[in-house]
């Protein structure tokens, strides 16, 4: 009796194992076909080609490091006044004669950047305005566990303040250090290209106040916009291109020291 039962069980075990393996193989054969069916569905998603695609150009050769843009951004977007919360900031790079690179940004550049290196030691010096690069393959969007940060249909990376849980994963994920935790709202905060202004036809606050037109804002799809003209006239480069973030902030005249 006992041995017979074991034999029957063994037979059942082999049967079910074979059925399982067979099932997995059939499933893996069907799966690639399913992918084609899904791809067709995605194509029918809403068409965004008639919307603008916002971007910004930054002309390093024009920036004088006055810090007006940083100040204006803080006023416009109610960014906390403490010197470690910035949606945009200006860095001064100084390459010394001995090859050492000094990067400084006291209070983000508000009140004008001051050269701290004596002029006889300077090989070259330049200002680099930094902001959210509005990547089309944004690491912060991938890192967000709840879908609170996203790329809007017109190409701006935004934070949904009422949906963010404040886990700060996106702050760690951003390779440009463009995000911070807002101490008042307790959620992630970042440059929005002044979304409330650009959708009303105004320029972002930093572009509005720039006295030397070092920041150029516009629609990448509109071939007559200032930004497209800027890109046609000048050679531009992205920050950290090896990360394949495909950002939409284009720097002109940047040197290899810029991180």
């Amino acid at each position: 009796m006992g041995t017979k039962r074991i034999r029957e069980n063994r037979r059942n075990f082999f049967k079910s194992t074979i059925a399982l393996i067979g099932g997995v193989i059939t499933y893996s054969l069907i799966k690639p076909i399913e992918v084609f069916a899904q791809a067709k569905e995605e194509e029918s998603k809403e068409d965004t080609s008639n919307l603008p695609l916002w971007g910004m150009g930054v002309d390093i050769e024009s920036c004088v490091g006055c810090g007006k843009c940083v100040e204006a951004c803080k006023i416009e977007n109610n960014v906390p006044k403490e010197p470690f919360y910035f949606r945009t900031w200006v860095e001064q790079y100084t390459v010394k004669n001995d090859g050492e690179v000094k990067i400084e940004s006291p209070n983000g550049g508000i009140g004008g950047l001051k050269q701290s290196v004596p002029s006889k030691d300077i090989f070259k010096s330049f200002m680099v305005p930094k902001l959210c690069n509005h990547c089309s393959e944004a690491p912060c969007v991938q890192a967000c566990p709840v879908g609170a940060t996203f790329i809007s249909p017109d190409g701006v990376v935004l934070v949904d303040e009422s949906y963010c849980i404040g886990c700060s994963y996106c702050i760690q994920a951003c390779p440009y250090g463009a995000r911070f935790m807002n101490p008042f709202t307790k959620v992630a905060d970042k440059c929005t290209f002044c979304y409330h202004r650009i959708t009303k036809g105004l320029d972002p606050a930093c572009v509005e106040v720039c006295p030397t037109d070092a920041r150029i804002f516009g629609d990448l799809r509109d071939k007559k916009s200032d930004l497209v003209k800027f890109l046609q006239k000048n050679q531009t480069q992205l920050l950290k291109p090896h990360l394949n973030t495909h950002s939409r902030v284009f720097y002109h005249g940047i040197s290899s020291e810029v991180k």
Binding site: V64, G65, T94, G111, L113, K114, Q115, I122, K124, S125
Partner: peptide, 9 residues
């Protein structure tokens, strides 16, 4: 802020 002498300007 704009006009003080600075090597970067």
């Amino acid at each position: 802020q704009c006009h003080a002498i600075n090597a970067g300007r």
